[in-house]
């Protein structure tokens, strides 16, 4: 995520490139090498026990014809959109609020931060228990709000639940990003706006939001890539069900790889996922002008 262009500011006192070695090495061993292996495997047939044998383009031609992949891709896209639309406004407002100096802000911020500290598995199991249609809290509380306790048994309900649980967990993280971003906004802008008679809302829409443009991009890229690879909650809460209605791409990959043991095809799905996620974040960065990092400080 760290844009390298900022270094153009000057090379005075910069550490040598070799300082990046541990990082590069780590990245190579745990990201590049596995990625290369996955790409290689996507051209193989492999059951995980015997040696992989070449399969040519079989996995890839199958990938583009497979209706399950199409459905999973659509669900992934849907989940990503819902997650983004749900998390961004809330995290943005919370972040801006948390950047202020109100009373008890620090305490509440700490409370809001808690979900991020819990393990994903614990959270998923917790919500699974809460949403149990027969013995969960939802059984008692759901009807008050006109919610059918069988939330996770309906296709829309299950997908929304997964998006909600993920949002609940990761919102604090994005709140933190927005809080940091808001604090970076020079106070002079607000002081000037106040002198010009701009109220709270105008200040928010004309100073805070535009100034947070790059922060929004950062947070969105993280959110989108995160939702595209969202897996653990699906595995624990819905197992891709009901039917295949929450079988998003990463879960389909898991099922193909570790339940059907068709690891070659699973690698093809994984590779496709990497390509899509990378492409999406590149497009987002390009179109939001995120590449020109210095632009928000223009005229200062």
């Amino acid at each position: 995520m760290r844009g390298g262009r900022k270094t153009a500011v000057g090379n005075v006192g910069r550490p040598p490139v070799s300082w990046a070695l541990p990082g590069i090495l780590f990245f190579a061993v745990f990201a590049i090498v596995p990625l290369a292996i996955a790409v290689y495997l996507s051209f193989c047939k492999w059951d995980g026990l015997n040696s992989p044998t070449s399969a040519g383009l079989d996995n890839w031609t199958r990938l583009f014809k497979d209706p399950e992949v199409r459905q999973a891709a659509w669900l992934s896209l849907l989940l990503t959109t819902i997650s983004w639309a749900f998390q961004t406004p809330v995290a943005l407002l919370l972040g801006v609020w948390a950047a202020g100096r109100q009373r008890s802000r620090a305490v509440l911020s700490a409370v809001f931060f808690v979900p991020l500290l819990l393990s994903t598995t614990a959270i998923a199991m917790l919500f699974h228990a809460l949403l149990d249609p027969n013995f969960g809290v939802i059984k008692e509380i759901g009807p008050w709000f006109g919610i059918d306790p069988n939330v996770m048994g309906s296709s829309t309900g299950a997908l929304l639940t997964v998006a909600f649980v993920g949002g609940w967990q990761f919102m604090p993280f994005h709140t933190l990003i927005y809080q940091g971003g808001t604090r970076q906004i020079p106070q002079v802008l607000y002081q000037a706006a106040e002198m010009d008679g701009a109220g709270m809302f105008r200040q928010f829409f004309h100073i805070t939001l535009p100034q947070l443009r790059n922060t929004i991009t950062t947070s969105s890229v993280l959110m989108i890539v995160g939702s595209l690879t969202y897996f653990d909650t699906v595995l624990i809460m819905t197992k891709g069900g009901p039917g295949t209605d929450t079988t998003v791409l990463p879960y389909l990959m898991y099922r193909t790889g570790f339940q059907t043991y068709d690891l070659g095809y699973a690698a093809a799905i994984a590779t496709a996922l990497v390509v899509v996620a990378t492409a999406l974040s590149l497009v987002l960065v390009r179109f939001s002008g995120f590449g020109n990092m210095r632009s928000t400080r223009e005229g200062m």
Partner: peptide, 20 residues
């Protein structure tokens, strides 16, 4: 074998869920 058993379970769950 799992290459048949896994799709079987998936298809069956779709049948039970009224999705197929």
């Amino acid at each position: 074998e799992s290459q048949y058993a896994t799709p079987l379970l998936t298809e069956l769950s779709k049948l039970f869920a009224g999705k197929s």
